[in-house]
Design a protein around this nucleic acid. Structure first.
Lengths: 386, 386
DNA sequence: ACAGTTTCCCGTAAATGC
DNA sequence: TGCATTTACGGGAAACTG
């Protein structure tokens, strides 16, 4: 009488934080004959992990028993929802059941559910458990925790293999790229196209590899830093996902952002374009940054130049929406009139045609222009309801 | 063997929040003869308030005993510092020792400290206690709590009169205005001048009152709303203090903000001034808002008009510093070239002379201008370290 | 329904542990 | 020492509670 089951978390499912509430639901998928007593479910954290052999031991602070009830929405099955479960630390232990120097974000836990029921004098034990959970004390680990969840669910069908990260299997780029695109389409509304995925594949595996069959290791995906950078591939990609969610959603979904473009491709794209042609791409050197590159008319028949700005990150974008930055960007060259160098979104769409509907899509907090100031009779001031 | 004593709080002294650490220090002001045992101090919350007769009962969650030590900085006196005290709720009680429908922010508490010492076979009890404390569960109550602390310390010399707010005495405007000015000079660096205090006095008590002797009630100061407004006098004033602390500090301290000006006074000031003369004043209709009013040249020999903008509040000022707003403010009148109407800070100081040193004093987060973009050889992009 | 009050929890910064 | 991990708590918003 076991059934697969999945807890929920407002932010990311299967990640819980000590001291913060989470909700979970258990359903009984078989119909029981009418019984005149109540079916009580008990919840246990890390039931099968022997205490003293786990690295961090947690327990549930809140009530762990609840009675099942007939679910209104379904066909009379029993279910129970725990709404305010909270876990807490016990302590760190010395002997760990997993091997190797795994990080906390790779440490898998689980919730178990038990119930008993008696029919015709026979006791029947019901038991089920959750998919692996990751317990994270800090939001700053969320990205790594989510990588664990993705890797696990991508590469194993077992509902519960808590030692998975002792020797995590590799993923083919074919599988992985599908999951990455799905991340984008789930969290933003637009997935990744072939060119974007191709750039990511090259970034992760190098240019020569036959991509779809190429194997990617867990370490390469999430643990090793990108050569020359202080962050891993997934840290970088997830920082961009966060940036889109918070500051670029409409223009990302409206396909204004090429985003994942190597510098070689960028050069190839813009080489023969009109001066003023520009494209938007995510920074490869900064976490969560976006920049634009435009074609500058050269002064005297030389080849045109490509110019980029320093990446905009969330702190600057929270002060001013990106569409407005593009609209109002000016270059001051000494002695000339400030001019906006951004004219055509690659390949050749007039800027305002692409971005007009996004100007002030979030209201500009720092607006400096007043269309027509309120005014009243002579020498009266503050007409705005004061 | 009692001595006055004062706890400290990072934000505002004498206000503590359940579950958040605070620090407190006790000194023994007499020198004891050498003793061969240690003097242990015990801390008790609300020692003398009978349980069951207080509205909210708190207790200290952390260790309450600590041994006194010779203080290095002073002349060998004993002292002890409790660094990580935390209180927590017990419950609400029915019978309250105070009368009337007082708010939580008027509920006074205290910390008591006890020590015993034995000399020549005689036990001597030492005891002291703190000035009244206010316990607040939320930052949104901080303003009201601070008003209680101010009123208490302004109007009583008793170190501990927990029933004070059952019938709070009135304050003379002479006393109160001094405290208000002191609030500004303590938290910002510049106090309030005579004109500013005069405006506040009229706002609080009406125009005709002989100010310094006029009595202000606690209710009028902090509990009743200003007629026609959804906030009290102190709520309004404190919101301005917060605005200055966060967004206007340099220009406030540089005396660029008249700030507290009635509309009548504003009119009298600006009436005969050059077009383009402006002044800055705090909004009387919005909490934590600042606005500017300028003299507009009338079209055809009419009397000049005074125009104001809608108040800027913290959300807009956090996107763009106020000095930059003043520098870049433009009015677009249909069919004309946008123009900045702010020329002379009242009475007649050229704008840039007053504000130049404050432009970009906080770095503008949403800057849109690049002096000279980085650039490299032909067709190379992103020179900013990528 | 409402206002006063508390809880909740993200996100950053700082502290802590290893 | 440096890195991994946890704690602290301001701030805004939701939830609570009489």
């Amino acid at each position: 009488e076991k059934q697969p089951w999945m807890p929920t978390h407002p932010q990311k499912p299967l990640i819980i934080k000590p001291g913060v509430q989470f909700t979970t639901k258990v359903r009984l998928l078989v119909k029981l004959p009418e019984v005149d007593y109540q079916l009580k479910v008990k919840t246990i954290f890390d039931k099968d992990l022997p205490p003293g052999r786990v690295r961090r031991q947690f327990f549930i602070l809140t009530s762990t028993h609840k009675v099942m009830d007939v679910e209104e929405s379904s066909n009379g099955c029993l279910s129970v929802e725990f709404r305010h479960l909270v876990t807490s630390h016990l302590h760190l232990c010395v002997f760990c059941w997993f091997q190797g120097p795994l990080s906390v974000m790779e440490e898998l836990h689980s919730l178990s559910f038990e119930a008993q029921f008696n029919i015709l004098g026979i006791n029947i034990d019901l038991e089920t458990c959750s998919f692996p959970l990751v317990v994270s004390s800090s939001l700053s680990q969320l990205s790594g925790c989510w990588a664990s969840i993705m890797w696990y669910n991508l590469l194993t069908d077992k509902p519960r293999n808590l030692g998975f990260f002792a020797s995590p299997p590799q993923a083919s780029w074919g599988q992985l790229s599908e999951v990455l695109s799905w991340q984008f389409s789930t969290f933003t509304g637009r997935g990744l196209n072939r060119e974007q995925l191709c750039m990511l594949g090259e970034k992760l595996m190098g240019q020569q590899a036959s991509h779809n069959e190429c194997q990617v290791s867990w370490s390469k995906f999430c643990k090793e830093n990108i050569p020359g950078k202080p962050f891993s591939f997934w840290m970088w990609l997830d920082s961009i996902l966060e940036l889109i969610k918070k500051h670029l959603l409409p223009i990302w979904n409206d396909n204004c952002i090429m985003g994942f473009v190597s510098k070689e491709t960028e050069r190839a794209c813009l080489k023969d374009k009109e001066p003023g042609t520009f494209l938007l791409r995510f920074s490869e050197s900064h976490l969560g940054g976006i920049t634009f590159t435009w074609v500058k008319q050269s002064d005297s028949g030389e080849a045109p130049k490509l110019i980029s700005v320093e990446p905009y990150t969330k702190s600057r974008l929270s002060a001013l929406p990106f569409a407005n930055i593009i609209r109002d960007y000016k270059v001051i060259v000494d002695g000339e009139v400030p001019e906006n160098p951004l004219k055509f979104l690659y390949p050749d769409i007039p800027k305002d045609e692409s971005f007009r509907r996004h100007y002030n899509s979030q209201q500009s907090k720092g607006k400096m222009f007043t269309k027509t100031p309120h005014r009243t009779g002579p020498l009266s001031a503050e007409t705005h309801s004061e």
